[in-house]
């Protein structure tokens, strides 16, 4: 069992490392992740929302729908833990 697990992780790691060579080098300002849509947020967030912290602005305003269901997810987690564990006093 452990040999199979080791083999599976080594093979998966080798495949991932083979895929890594297509990535941009570390801290490259022209990498695809930093050039496509991210520069729009950096340039226009302050003008559109007056919020200096761009991360909070994207979290609360542009991706507000995502954050709303994030809150619902942790709420559901709390409810689930109460339902699984709580024993009635009587």
């Amino acid at each position: 069992m452990k040999a199979i697990a080791l083999l599976a992780s080594v093979i998966t790691g080798a495949v991932l490392l083979y895929g890594v060579q297509d990535f941009a080098p570390w801290a490259d300002p022209t990498s695809p992740a930093s050039t496509h849509v991210a520069s729009y947020y950096i340039e226009n967030t302050v003008r559109e929302t007056y919020i200096p912290n761009i991360v909070t602005a994207v979290l609360g305003d542009y991706r507000g729908y995502d954050t709303m269901f994030e809150t619902v997810v942790i709420f559901c987690a709390g409810m689930a833990v109460i339902c699984v564990l709580r024993r009635s006093k009587s």
Binding site: A33, V37, A38, Y41, I42, V58, R63
Partner: peptide, 11 residues
Amino acid sequence: AATVVNPLPHV
């Protein structure tokens, strides 16, 4: 945009 890191992965 080059003077600020990409905020989207952080979010």
